[in-house]
Amino acid sequence: MTVSVTLTVNGKAASASVDPRMLLVHLLRDQLQLTGTHVGCDTAQCGACTIHLNGRAVKACSMLAVQANGANVTTIEGLTGKGDKMHPMQEAFRDCHGLQCGFCTPGMVMSACQLLADNPKPTEAEIRAGLEGNICRCTGYHNIVKAVQQAAAQA
C-alpha cells in the first residue's frame, strides 16, 4: 500500500507516493533526491537530519512522510540562495572552520538558524545548550560555537 503526499519543499510543490511507514527524511533523500539532509542515527538523537518544517527546526527522522502532508519544508539545499549564494550561517561555518567531514553540517546549520531565530544574541552557554541535539564527532564544537557567534554578530 502506498499513500500520496503533497508538500512544499524549498519553495516548490512536491508530491510522492510513499510507503506509510516511510520517514520524512527518506522521502527527502530517496524520492526527492535532496541528499543534503543526512541520517546519522536511528533514535532521533544526532540531529544530522534537521530541517525546517513550517518554520521550525525538526528532526526529519522523527516523523513519517505522511505527517508532512501539506507542510512547508526547507532543507539545507533550500537555505542556499540563487547562484549558490550561501546563507550567512553557511558563510559563518566556512569562515570559522565549523565543519570537517561535513556529515553533521547540514543539520547543524539548520539547528543553528533556529537557535538565532529564537535568541538573536545568545551567550556561549546558550549556543552550546541550543546545539545539544546535534552531534558532531569531528570539530569538538569549538568552531561551530564561533560560527554561530559570527552569524549572530552579523545579523
Binding site: 533523500r29 535532496l34 541528499t35 543534503g36 539532509t37 543526512h38 541520517v39 532543507t75 539545507i76 539545499e77 537555505l79 542556499t80 549558490d84 550561501m86 553557511q90 561555518f93 566556512r94 569562515d95 572552520h97 565543519l99 567531514c101 561535513g102 556529515f103 553540517t105 547540514p106 546549520v109
Partner: peptide
C-alpha cells in the same frame, strides 16, 4: 586558507556513499 571543500558540504552537495 578557508577550505575549498566546504561549499559543497555546506550547501548539501556532498556525495557520501548513501547519496
Amino acid at each position: 586558507i578557508l577550505r575549498r571543500e566546504d561549499q559543497r558540504f555546506l550547501t548539501g552537495n556532498g556525495q557520501y556513499t548513501d547519496d
